[in-house]
């Protein structure tokens, strides 16, 4: 029992140290690639075709342009959820269906068993 506990503590400590080291390494040595502070949202929405794409912040421009060309939806999140990732949304909604079916089975059974206990 004691040996198991020592091994578990050692493993957790190693994982913690590795995680801390990787966080410090990433924070100090790796340069930032995308920071949304430079995106001019008003310009982007008024005229998405003539926005500066030379720096990484132009990624937002590409996303807006491609969405308008392919789906013509003003809300990009809705376009991604229902068009580009339609299968994902299908799975999500069926997870909800399954969860409600399971809750119905469990809760209705507990109701019945209550009645039986009273009798």
């Amino acid at each position: 029992m004691k040996a198991k506990r020592i091994v578990a503590i050692a493993a957790l400590a190693i994982i913690l140290i590795a995680g801390l080291y990787s966080v410090i390494f990433a924070y100090t040595n790796i340069a930032k690639t995308y920071d949304g502070s430079d995106v001019n949202v008003v310009d982007l929405y008024n005229n998405p075709t003539q926005y500066d794409v030379s720096d990484p912040d132009g990624v937002a421009d590409i996303i807006v342009k491609q969405n308008l060309e392919k789906t013509m939806a003003a809300n990009n999140v809705a376009a991604v959820v229902f068009d580009f990732r339609g299968f994902d949304t299908l799975g999500e909604s069926f997870i909800l269906l399954t969860a409600i079916a399971g809750a119905y089975v469990i809760l209705s059974k507990s109701k019945k068993s209550k009645k039986e206990d009273e009798q």
């Binding site: 308008l68 789906t71 013509m72 939806a73 003003a74 809705a78 376009a79 229902f82 068009d83």
Partner: peptide, 11 residues
Amino acid sequence: AVGDLISAGTI
């Protein structure tokens, strides 16, 4: 046009 209610098709 973009921004109409049914401009996005099946979405």
